[in-house]
Write a protein that binds this DNA or RNA. Sequence first.
DNA 1: GTGATTGCAAATTTTTTGCAAGATA
DNA 2: TATCTTGCAAAAAATTTGCAATCAC
Lengths: 151, 151
Amino acid sequence: MPAQLKAPSVDEFRTMLKRRGLKATRQRIAVHEAMSALGHASADMVCMEIERRGGGSVTVASVYNILSQLADIKIYGRRMSANNKMYFDVNTARHLHLYDRENNSFRDVTDEDLTDLVMSKLKRRKFKGYTIEDIDIQFICRPTKRKGATS
Amino acid sequence: MPAQLKAPSVDEFRTMLKRRGLKATRQRIAVHEAMSALGHASADMVCMEIERRGGGSVTVASVYNILSQLADIKIYGRRMSANNKMYFDVNTARHLHLYDRENNSFRDVTDEDLTDLVMSKLKRRKFKGYTIEDIDIQFICRPTKRKGATS
DNA sequence: GTGATTGCAAATTTTTTGCAAGATA
DNA sequence: TATCTTGCAAAAAATTTGCAATCAC
């Protein structure tokens, strides 16, 4: 079963911020704690998660700004979802994704072999005029229906 | 060089519509002609393309509705872009994509081998609770800078 | 203290919806 | 003609921005 990758601890996160010259504000820490719990989330999901855990809230606008700033400096990753929302990924280590198109949710999939395979095949392909920065592999799935399933 | 896949001709498109019991309206044909020229596009891009080629315009709202309807019945595909816009793909045949993150544009990449490889590897992986419907492989690229390039 | 950061509210941008008017089969 | 479609305008949803107030260092 594909386990979720582990997110950087709050301490590690603080260090990452410091290294970039960013301040460890209550809001940024709250966002990271929410993201650690969620794995992959959109701004409003992060907001709700922060509320849910109590201890002060953060404006949606700030959450947006924080998330995209963290993604810009590659502490988080960006994921595009089919429901017109920007999702962020707490983990930047290379991995694949399983996208549940019904619930618009992501799960991590680790498969070194597959990634390596694709990468090595790739070396043989050059796309004129472009530099490949990353490869995104995603399994588009639907939850398997089963009787008696509790939604 | 990765050639763009060929889109269904207008006649083929008419047939596809008929098969689904949809009427071949001026607007739908215009959308398809624009999509054929563009390959991958968002609603507003389609709108502009329709204007550009003259011969009557179509409302953005209608373009949205037409595109998503066509995607729902799998005549078109949906692509998620990094700029928070829904892109549509005139072609539904399985293929890979090159995503230009600078211009937010897509190009088709055909690579039977790679696709087959991934598919066969995949058969060995089962994700409990999910049915895999599709695999999305995308190369995230940036245009290679070159001197004297005309933007 | 001081510059970085957030809150708030308002502006943008993208997508969706309701319903009358218009077009297609 | 009967129904499916579109236009229009307005609503909803998602994201961005400006600036004063606040906080971390």
